[in-house]
Computed example of a mutant assay.
Amino acid sequence: MKGKKIQLVIATANLLPGGAERVLSFLATEIDKEQFEVTIVVFGHERDVSYDLKGVNTVFFGRDRVMHGIFDFLKFLKRHKPDIVLTAIGHLNTLAAYASWFFPKTKFVAREVNVLSVLDTFTDRKLNYLKLFTKNRFRFFDAIICQSDDMKEDLKKSYSFNYDKMVVINNPITDGFKVKEQLPPMKPVALITVGRLAKEKGYDRLLNVLSRLDLPFHYTMIGRGPEKENIFRLIDDYKLGDKITHIEYTAEIPDYLRKSHIYLQGAYVEGFPNAVIESASVGTPVLAFDAPGGINEIIEDGINGYRVFSAEDYLKTLKSICLDYTFVPELVSASVNKKYNKDIIIQRFEALFLKLCTVNDG
């Protein structure tokens, strides 16, 4: 790779609002352009772009599904012969794994986004004739990026491949999540959750807790997803409608987090929760149910939040925080920025890619 830039292709199904899409877009814009020539390949449509790509070369296939863009992807790789291809999310990782057979000089890197064995318990699985291909996909990658230690251990238990190919690279704190300058008034207590409205996100247990919280509060939910109808049915059942604001999408998430006192994390499983580190970054502590996917790596009890193990403990801890709020925004922010700031995380991506290309040269 001496004397020329490394040709890096970052492939994604779409650029709609989402954690994986945001991290990939951020990586494309922030990676060292003196060493890398980056192209984002999007299977979906240009109209769906939700992120500022700051002049990054972007190619759209205009397909509604990844399967419909298979030949577009193969033709693109044949034409451009990139040094590295980075993909994320299961079905696209599966496609890239088998595409690697036809491009032996290209290094293929998978970025996994979930603790798969746990996520499967929340997903309706239809008969899948490609299951064998999915099961074996990690064997064909040159590197597999895990977002958390939990994810790495889960892949070891669930899949058979060369585990030396795995590397843990957490999600970065992206731009805009600056620490709040002052604490907002505590009456009512401002609670917030940002995330997809899906079964695995645990809104059911958060709403159950809130239905028993006998203190003045207002809860803001930001996100959209397939469980919206069921979640709002629960809100009605618990008679919480006048205490909850729902926002499907906003570009002002940092401001909403700064105006909140406590972030409520209810998920049963995560990959590595962006919203949790972003909340802490602005100085808003997190009350989280223990769950696989990085929670145990992020939360420092009493410093940036608490990790609890039952609904009763969640309610008890939430009441305690509301009645005696001792968190210092600057300390909450420092606890995550020292580990997940963008410079640290981007350098880890760069180091991995440079190592792969060194192997390629050899």
Results as ranks from 00 to 15, higher is better:
22 R>K: 13
58 T>E: 10
39 T>H: 14
38 V>I: 06
41 V>F: 03
22 R>W: 00
26 F>Q: 00
39 T>V: 12
36 F>E: 08
58 T>Y: 05
46 E>I: 12
57 N>M: 11
22 R>I: 00
37 E>L: 11
34 E>C: 07
42 V>N: 05
43 F>E: 14
44 G>A: 04
30 E>H: 08
36 F>S: 12
51 Y>N: 10
30 E>D: 10
45 H>S: 07
65 R>G: 11
21 E>Q: 05
35 Q>C: 01
64 D>H: 13
46 E>W: 14
64 D>P: 13
58 T>V: 15
64 D>G: 04
52 D>Q: 06
42 V>I: 11
32 D>A: 12
29 T>E: 11
26 F>T: 00
24 L>E: 02
43 F>C: 03
29 T>G: 14
52 D>W: 07
27 L>W: 03
25 S>P: 04
27 L>I: 03
32 D>H: 10
63 R>N: 07
41 V>I: 04
61 F>S: 08
27 L>A: 09
28 A>C: 05
36 F>N: 05
49 V>A: 07
25 S>T: 13
59 V>S: 04
23 V>H: 02
47 R>M: 15
63 R>P: 06
58 T>F: 08
52 D>T: 08
36 F>P: 04
25 S>C: 05
32 D>C: 05
60 F>E: 09
37 E>M: 14
64 D>I: 15
45 H>R: 11
49 V>Y: 12
56 V>W: 06
56 V>P: 07
33 K>D: 09
38 V>M: 08
22 R>S: 00
56 V>M: 13
25 S>D: 07
57 N>P: 10
51 Y>E: 11
53 L>P: 06
35 Q>S: 07
40 I>H: 02
65 R>T: 03
49 V>Q: 13
39 T>K: 03
35 Q>E: 01
48 D>H: 14
66 V>R: 01
49 V>E: 04
35 Q>P: 05
42 V>G: 06
47 R>D: 09
56 V>Y: 09
63 R>C: 04
27 L>D: 05
44 G>V: 13
32 D>T: 10
24 L>G: 00
40 I>N: 03
30 E>P: 01
63 R>F: 09
40 I>F: 09
42 V>P: 14
23 V>G: 08
44 G>S: 02
31 I>R: 01
36 F>K: 07
56 V>T: 13
52 D>S: 06
58 T>Q: 13
54 K>R: 01
51 Y>A: 13
48 D>Q: 07
49 V>C: 02
51 Y>Q: 06
49 V>D: 11
62 G>F: 14
23 V>A: 04
47 R>T: 13
64 D>S: 11
65 R>D: 03
38 V>N: 09
58 T>G: 06
47 R>E: 09
65 R>K: 10
54 K>P: 11
32 D>W: 04
56 V>R: 12
27 L>F: 14
46 E>Q: 05
26 F>E: 00
26 F>N: 00
28 A>Y: 01
22 R>N: 00
57 N>L: 07
53 L>I: 15
24 L>H: 02
45 H>N: 12
66 V>I: 12
62 G>K: 02
58 T>N: 15
62 G>A: 09
60 F>H: 08
55 G>V: 15
37 E>V: 05
32 D>L: 03
22 R>Y: 00
21 E>F: 06
33 K>M: 11
54 K>H: 03
24 L>I: 04
43 F>D: 01
61 F>N: 15
55 G>Y: 10
29 T>W: 03
64 D>L: 15
